[in-house]
Computed example of a mutant assay.
Amino acid sequence: MADIDPDSIPFVPPVEVALTKTDSGRPTTAFHDWLMGLWSWMKNNVVALDHKLTTVESETNGNTAAITTEIEARTDADNALAAQITTVSTTVGENTADISELFTSVNGLGVQWAIQAYVGGSYGGVVFTGLKRADGTGADFLLEIQSNVVINGNLLVTGSVLNVGLNNNAATQIATASGDSSASLAINYRGTGKISIIAYYAGTPAIDRGGVPNLAVSMDSGQIDAVGNNYYAYVPSSGPVAIRLLQTTLLTEITPSPGNHTFTVTNGVGGGVRIWVFEGSK
Rank of each mutant, 00 (worst) to 15 (best):
Q223K: 06
S8C: 03
D76Q: 09
S58Y: 06
F141H: 13
G259R: 03
F128N: 05
P236Y: 00
M219H: 04
G124F: 05
T172E: 09
R190H: 07
K21D: 00
R74A: 15
T266Q: 01
E57D: 07
A73K: 12
D5R: 06
L155D: 00
G93I: 06
R209H: 15
T137N: 10
F128Y: 14
V164S: 13
G130M: 06
G110K: 02
N267W: 00
V46R: 03
S238P: 10
R209K: 15
G211A: 14
S257Y: 06
G239T: 04
N148C: 03
S184W: 04
Y118M: 04
A18G: 08
N169Y: 00
S122F: 15
Y201F: 15
E101G: 03
T266S: 13
D33Y: 03
T64C: 10
T60C: 00
D50I: 12
T248F: 08
L166C: 12
A226G: 02
K132G: 05
Y234G: 11
A114F: 05
A186V: 14
T249L: 02
T158A: 08
G191C: 06
D76K: 03
S237Q: 05
G210E: 09
K282E: 09
G25M: 09
S89A: 15
G120E: 10
T266R: 04
A66Y: 02
T55P: 00
D50Y: 11
G193Q: 05
N267V: 13
G193L: 06
D5S: 09
D180W: 04
V164K: 10
I187C: 03
A48N: 11
F31K: 02
W34R: 01
P13F: 00
T104G: 01
W39N: 02
S89D: 02
F263N: 04
A242T: 14
V161C: 07
A73W: 04
D98T: 11
N260I: 14
T69S: 14
D135I: 11
G25I: 09
A233F: 10
H32T: 04
N95A: 14
W276T: 13
G130P: 00
R26K: 14
I275N: 09
T262I: 15
L19I: 15
